[in-house]
Simulated assay, not measured.
Amino acid sequence: MYFPIANIEINPFIPPVVAFVISFFTSMGGVSGAFLLLPFQVSVLGFNSPAVSATNQLFNIVAIPSGIYRYIKEGRMVWPLTWVVIIGTLPGVLIGAIIRIQYLPDPRNFKMFVGLILLYIGSRLLKDILKGKRNKKGELSVDEKFQKLNKEFNSKHREVDKQLPKVIVIEFSLTRISYDFYGQEFKINTIGVMTLSAIVGIIGGVYGIGGGAIIAPLFISYFGLPVYTVAGA
């Protein structure tokens, strides 16, 4: 089948199958997988025009809702954090889209940009994995505590119709967001999150992703937030 905008000819079943496989695994970490789908479109399918970024953004809109529904149902959505991220990201995405069209229309330059972003994401993930291994010698991380508490809760209430403890928002202001998760309080700077979201939004607008794969590791590493609460945001 020929796709005129992408100027490629391919079996129409291949893109949805690849998108399904990618989103199946990446949704577990709170990202749509668009950061992996774009390299596939550019390098494998040969879709090199700026339209590939817009196509990837549309994939985000379709792939994300099902994952969000689960986090809402389980009470793991930190809504103040979500709204701050949205407010910061939207203008950044618009700026990024303009940069993509005007300054990065050349496929070679765009591939270099994509490569740098993937290198950053990969290095952050590797660093977090190595850091996690070192932490196992000492205290449990927040996420490990959650897993332990979650397992204990399920074993105690398996036969009882009870729900897991949910996120409790303690404070939401222009300067600070504070919430409780499994008995532990987390505090973050509102302006800092909004600024970071704007920067990530610009990068995401150029790349064609929502930015979750970039901002989630930063929330975990720099802000010290548990992945089980930032994934929904």
Rank of each mutant, 00 (worst) to 15 (best):
M1D: 11
Y2E: 15
F3W: 13
F3P: 07
P4Q: 10
I5E: 07
N7F: 07
N11T: 07
F13S: 09
I14S: 04
V21F: 14
S23D: 09
S23Y: 02
F25S: 13
T26Y: 12
T26I: 03
T26W: 09
S27H: 10
S27C: 03
G29Q: 02
V31E: 00
A34V: 10
L37M: 04
P39I: 07
P39V: 11
Q41D: 10
L45K: 01
G46A: 13
A51M: 14
V52M: 13
S53M: 04
N56K: 05
L58I: 15
I61G: 02
I64P: 04
I64A: 05
G67K: 02
Y69F: 10
Y71W: 09
E74Y: 01
G75R: 05
G75P: 08
R76T: 11
R76H: 14
P80M: 10
P80K: 00
T82L: 15
I86H: 13
I86K: 04
I86A: 14
T89L: 09
L90S: 08
P91A: 04
G92T: 06
G96L: 05
G96A: 03
I101Y: 12
Q102G: 04
Y103W: 15
D106N: 15
F110P: 03
F113K: 07
L119M: 15
Y120L: 13
I121T: 10
S123G: 11
D128L: 10
I129S: 09
R134G: 02
N135W: 07
K136P: 05
L140S: 11
L140M: 13
D143G: 09
K145V: 09
K145S: 06
L149Y: 14
K151Q: 05
K151E: 13
E152V: 12
E152K: 13
F153H: 12
K156T: 09
E159D: 13
V160M: 13
D161E: 14
K162S: 10
L164R: 09
V167Q: 07
I168L: 02
I170A: 00
I170P: 02
F172Y: 14
T175L: 14
T175A: 14
S178D: 05
Y179C: 07
F181P: 00
Y182A: 04
Q184L: 06
F186V: 03
I188T: 11
I188Y: 02
I188S: 10
I188G: 08
N189M: 07
I191L: 15
V193K: 08
T195C: 14
A198Y: 11
A198C: 13
I199Y: 09
I199R: 04
I202L: 07
I203V: 15
G205S: 01
V206Y: 08
Y207Q: 09
G208K: 09
I209P: 06
A216F: 08
A216C: 06
I220Y: 07
S221G: 05
Y222W: 14
G224R: 08
L225M: 12
L225K: 08
Y228A: 05
G232A: 15
G232R: 00
A233Q: 01
